[in-house]
Design a protein around this nucleic acid. Sequence first.
DNA 1: GTCTATACAGCGATAGAC
DNA 2: GTCTATCGCTGTATAGAC
Lengths: 201, 201
Amino acid sequence: MPAPTKVRKTKRSSTTPDRILDVAQRLMQTRGYNGFSYADVAAEIGISKASLHHHFSTKAKLGAAIIERYAGLIAAALAAIDAGEREATERLARYTQLYADVLSQDRLCLGAMLAAEFATLPQPMQKTVRQFFRTNHNWLESVIGYGRKAGNLAPQGSDVDAARVLLSGLEGAMLIARPMKDIDSFYVTARALLANLQRRS
Amino acid sequence: MPAPTKVRKTKRSSTTPDRILDVAQRLMQTRGYNGFSYADVAAEIGISKASLHHHFSTKAKLGAAIIERYAGLIAAALAAIDAGEREATERLARYTQLYADVLSQDRLCLGAMLAAEFATLPQPMQKTVRQFFRTNHNWLESVIGYGRKAGNLAPQGSDVDAARVLLSGLEGAMLIARPMKDIDSFYVTARALLANLQRRS
DNA sequence: GTCTATACAGCGATAGAC
DNA sequence: GTCTATCGCTGTATAGAC
């Protein structure tokens, strides 16, 4: 087996662009797109603002790269859930855990944050935000429909309605839990939302 | 009946401070606290930035005045609902209509917007945001509890849980409806949320 | 209470050396 | 790919005349 012509650098686990994306994403999820600056990111990473511009020439492009990566990671996470679990109830439980993990880092779902700031976002970011919500909604609708047919779920209205209620409820619970400093209320709300899908009363 | 010593000016229906509050509030609900400037407000009203500072010396004080007024108006609206309606189902329907009216103006609930921006807000604003959510939550819990005792509502979990689900669901539905340009999805979601409270399956 | 003018900090972004 | 230095602009806020 010949040695690869170009091996991954062993020195560092992530490249500078990756670290920029990570830091800027965290700031976007905690402070919003309008609530952080290139200076914030540069200072935290330990490079100059000019170097930051070398990797992401404009803030709009940096923001677009982050929400695109986020949407892709979520889509991958949904696929991983589908690959790992069969039962709809278990897949939905895993889905709510994705939100809980974000909230436990004191972050808001990036989609929710950018939904609030939507009117001020550059158009490419707006487009990806909408795509993000469509992806989530369609996946939920699909899982709920599957669960209903399998007899594990019995939501009151249509699958579309149930998907909307669950997505809205989780995003809203996340939104409110942070300022109220009450992460537990998110878990309680998420449980109640899932229970509403199963209940036969 | 003696003439009042000081009558309300007939020339204009609102004072300059009121117009400032109205314009700035609309900008806060559409673009966020970090998404508007004194220049925006001044230009729209037709006065200078300096004049704006005469009425509200700092942006933090302007923001605080707006969220305080908003919280007060909502509290008054809840009291008006209680005064006008007895049935829990009808009171909750009126409550959701408050949200729908805001959304129909392409605005987000101010509480939701500031919840997203929470980490960047001056402390006095943070305090009022939290109070706003507590007021809403407590009112919902009370109405749901009343409806349960009256036999009109039969939520699955506790009153507190049901209040959380409804509040989170409405705020989340509003948050998502705007970027998706789908106001109707808010109505549908709101109806489903209310149905979940009534259902006996 | 309104204005013009301005201070001063921060913003995103660029130039050009190393 | 990194840096220093700087540009042009906008942000909040102030000074002082009217």
